[in-house]
Write a protein that binds this DNA or RNA. Structure first.
Ligand code: FES
Ligand code: FES
Lengths: 153, 153
DNA sequence: ATATATTAAGACCTTTTTATCTTTTATATA
DNA sequence: TATATAAAAGATAAAAAGGTCTTAATATAT
């Protein structure tokens, strides 16, 4: 019931592409990595894999970068997770039992299951573009920078 | 928003102690490790730490082992998590933002938050003994062995 | 007292995950 | 066609998590 850091980065940066990139406004790894505050060589690797998985697209050279085609836009967040982590990890039992399943429920299964269904639904029922539009209109964040408005010495 | 394997083991085995051990029925690491199907040297380490944290108790020597005192029984599951993982990990943003917080919500924050509150409540509002009694009466499992009733060649 | 069973302590190893670096390849455009 | 730019590929490194092993300490029962 948990995402790797890798798939978190992949989700956030794909949503960033959905919002900011297009076929004639491709964006480089470096820019994205800075925007959503993730390590850029690591993100580059993830993007290679997402391109192979046909979740996102890329072109090399000047003005090259990453973007989403119409087809890419039809993918959903669960496709990203599947591409990076596979589906096992997110389906695991919250307490680590070998199966997560209502017939042999762990002590928190019936609290976890509704949440799991609801978040998997969220990740499956809208495509990337719809998901992105929703989060933009609702003002959801893909990064939090400058939390540090704190007392410095 | 996730537990390490270590704290999962710790939770399951402490609940096992609550159910099966007592001051005059102490249980060895080896027996517990086999019962809930976790690696025993690893569990031994975790138990050392839980003893230091006064979550569980132990005595050495023949008929020694681990058990819960009255005081131990008053601890809750969140105390176990805090002792092994600290509290940061379970409070992290589901998508990895640097803060999980309603004023800067990630795209799934408002799905995650109610679940987080509910599971943290579950882990905090009953002590170990009460929690254990509840899961026993409801038939919740601490392990699933022998899932393999499958077709073998 | 002695033998034995069991935890405590700490060093060590392995695997997985995360992150970086270097070289090659493709592409746009000057 | 040369040059610059950006991704692809793949080797490598660092860190974290998970797991094991050996020796020491200690409590119990005989
Ligand atoms: S979450 Fe534990 S069995 Fe489903
Ligand atoms: S879960 Fe992402 S901000 Fe709360």
């Amino acid at each position: 019931m948990m995402l790797s850091r890798a798939s978190k980065y992949a989700i956030l940066s794909t949503l960033y592409l959905a919002e900011h990139a297009s076929e004639n406004r491709k964006i480089s790894v470096k820019v994205i990595a800075e925007s959503i505050d993730v390590p850029s060589p690591f993100l580059a690797k993830l993007f290679q894999q997402l391109v192979k998985g046909k979740i996102i697209s890329s072109t090399k050279g000047p003005n090259g970068g990453f973007y989403l085609t119409k087809k890419n836009q039809k993918k959903n967040v669960l496709d990203i997770i599947e591409n990076i982590d596979g589906l096992n990890r997110i389906n695991e039992c919250f307490l680590g039992l070998s199966e997560c399943d209502g017939t042999n429920p762990c002590p928190v299964h019936f609290i976890v299951e509704p949440f799991k269904n609801s978040i998997l639904g969220k990740f499956r029922d809208k495509n990337i573009m719809e998901f992105s539009q929703e989060i933009v209109s609702k003002g959801r964040k893909l990064t939090i920078k400058d939390i540090s408005t704190e007392i410095n010495s």
